[in-house]
């Protein structure tokens, strides 16, 4: 039976494992100075040691975590609020929710350019305010995108993330048994307690899933940081790109070491976060 399942999945599993494992192995090997374009080389941890001494890398890591956390948390929060608002609408009006799907359809890079065109100091909003006479020069428009805080990237991630979270959380919410809420209200609970004790625990698994996916995507994403990010500090992905393509071939192992660390971080983060989510959802474990 099990053998049949494995054989059935083989056409999918084999290319996936081959590509993923080969890529991962090669990355790991090159991060240790092996299989480099320059020659076979000798195994060393020198590039990892170099990472610990790289202060710029620390700043990049901090920025990546900051952008990933706030874009994921903001998306989950926004998606939850929107899902609740849509859920409370009369069924006929819920169709307006389709507007939120626009953000899902657009590619990340398009969303990045959208934010750039709208909110840069030479963007549409700035021009509109200038034309309306609300600011005397376009440069008076506050620099939102390039402040080093990652705000522009967070805005772009939110534009993509909120509809994604809305989709995941809304799917749970629209299948939610309304009688649970009716029962809570009959038992004397107010709207807040009802939400906190009855509705939220049902939404948490979808919220956790949305958060972890969005966090890890933002943490390692390249397209939005490439359009909206800065170099100093840059997101980790930009740093890897920079080292890999714009520097000497001999520095390639350092890029690979950063990639390996990012992969290990993502795996450990996913594992720890799942444990945390399971702890929060203690009741599900007993089912």
């Amino acid at each position: 039976m099990r053998r049949n399942v494995i054989l059935g999945l083989a056409p999918l599993l084999l290319p996936y494992c081959a590509l993923f494992c080969a890529g991962l192995t090669l990355t790991l090997a090159q991060s240790m100075g092996l299989f480099l374009p320059l020659g076979p080389g000798e195994a060393t941890l020198e590039y990892y040691q170099a990472l610990t001494r790289d202060q710029g890398l620390g700043l990049s890591l901090r920025l990546s975590l900051f952008v990933a956390f706030f874009s994921a948390a903001g998306s989950v929060l926004g998606g939850t609020v929107l899902a609740l608002a849509l859920w409370r609408m009369p069924p006929g009006l819920r169709r307006v929710g389709v507007v939120s799907k626009i953000g899902l359809i657009l590619p990340h890079v398009a969303v990045a350019f959208l934010v750039l065109l709208m909110l840069s100091q030479t963007g549409l909003v700035s021009s509109a305010l200038f034309q309306l006479g609300l600011i005397s020069t376009p440069e008076e428009f506050p620099n939102i995108l390039h402040t080093g805080s990652g705000l522009g990237m967070i805005l772009a991630f939110l534009l993509k993330g909120v509809p994604f979270a809305l989709l995941l959380i809304g799917a749970v919410l629209f299948g939610f048994d309304i009688r649970l809420i009716q029962t809570a209200r009959m038992l004397g609970a107010g709207p807040l307690r009802t939400f906190w004790s009855v509705t939220l625990p049902r939404l948490l698994p979808a919220m956790h899933s949305a958060f972890i996916i969005l966090f890890l995507y933002a943490f390692g994403s390249f397209d939005i940081p490439f359009v909206l990010g800065e170099s100093h500090p840059g997101m980790l992905s930009i740093r890897v790109f920079d080292i890999f393509f714009h520097r000497d071939l001999s520095q390639r192992p350092q890029a690979m070491a950063i990639l390996t660390v990012m992969f290990v971080f993502a795996a450990v983060f996913a594992m720890l976060y799942n444990r945390f989510a399971a702890y929060m959802d203690a009741w599900r474990r007993k089912l």
């Binding site: 048994d177 649970l180 049902r202």
Partner: peptide, 14 residues
Amino acid sequence: PAILVFQDYVLFPN
């Protein structure tokens, strides 16, 4: 209050 017990009880699963 008046309290309704639904057919399938609708206990809070969490």
